[in-house]
Each structure stands twice: as C-alpha cells, then as structure tokens.
Amino acid sequence: MLSKDPYDILGVSPYATDDEVKRAYRDLAKKYHPDLHVDNPLAELAQDKFREVQEAYDAVMQERASGMPHSYQSGNGQSGTYNNGRAADPFGFGGGYSNQGYQNNYNNNYNNYQQRQNQYRGESGNDPCNCCMELWCLDSICECMGGDLIRCC
C-alpha cells in the first residue's frame, strides 16, 4: 500500500498525459532496476524504490482506467486517424469506425473527466461576482492587518 501520492513518487503532475506518466515510469524503473544494483550496498534500497515506482505506476494507470479515458493527448495528432478508417467497419454500419461501442465509452469517460477537472478548478467556477467578492474579502483582511491590497477599495 502506498503511503505517498503516486504522482509524487513518479515525479509528474496529476494532469500529466499518459505518455508523460509512462516516460517517467520507464526512466525511474531503468534507474532503480535490481539488475543494475547487484554489487551495490544500497541494492535493497534500490529494490524498495523499484517496487514503490511499480506500485505507483499501477495505481495511476488503474485510477485513469476506471475514471478517465486512456489519453490520446500526446499531441502528435494521431488520435483522429483511426476514427476515419474506411476499412474499419467490416459489418457495413457506415460512419467508418467499427469500435463505436468502445468510442462511446471513451466519450462518456472523457466527459466525466472534464466534469471532474472543472470541480478541481474550485467551487467558485468562473463566476465574476464570486471572484470580485473574494478579492474584496482578501483586501479587507489585508487592511485589518495593516496593509492595503487594493488601493481603490
């Protein structure tokens, strides 16, 4: 069981793309692989670290598989390619993409992911009234303590 945040162990942001998570895992796994520390007095430590990295990777991928779509966000523009594959619909349903069921699941998961992202951005959302209120509160607290955040307030 991991005591630390798996993203911290891998050294990536929770918003990192899948490819970034995989790259981070590969780099750490290469660094702490037991075969590279056979004659090293710190071999046991390396092994513990290797196991921790492995568990962190598994935890991140499991979390993403359960709630978030696997990401095509590597930015190389390939994600649209297979959606238009003409030969990808052998049973003649048209639309060109026979993985419709999988694609629908992907879309649903992606929408859930977007909603969750909005929650993380704060309860206030993008409401300007709330933003203004918060700034006024901050300015008032600042003035109580002898400062003045917003001079015109």
Binding site: A65, T81, Y82, A87, P90, G92
Partner: peptide
C-alpha cells in the same frame, strides 16, 4: 494502454484499432 509502451506505439495502435478489422472478408 495501461502498459508503459512508448516505442513504436503508433504502429501497435494502428494494428489494434484499425488493422485487425482490415483482415475480415467484409472489409
């Protein structure tokens, strides 16, 4: 997609998402 595969990943995705359907007789 849960495997840490980066090398040649687009070739593997081509096979898994598109190529497997092209071998069927209807295609």
């Amino acid at each position: 997609e849960t495997l840490p595969v980066l090398r040649d990943v687009e070739i593997l995705r081509n096979i898994l998402y598109a190529g497997v359907w092209s071998g069927l007789p209807e295609a």
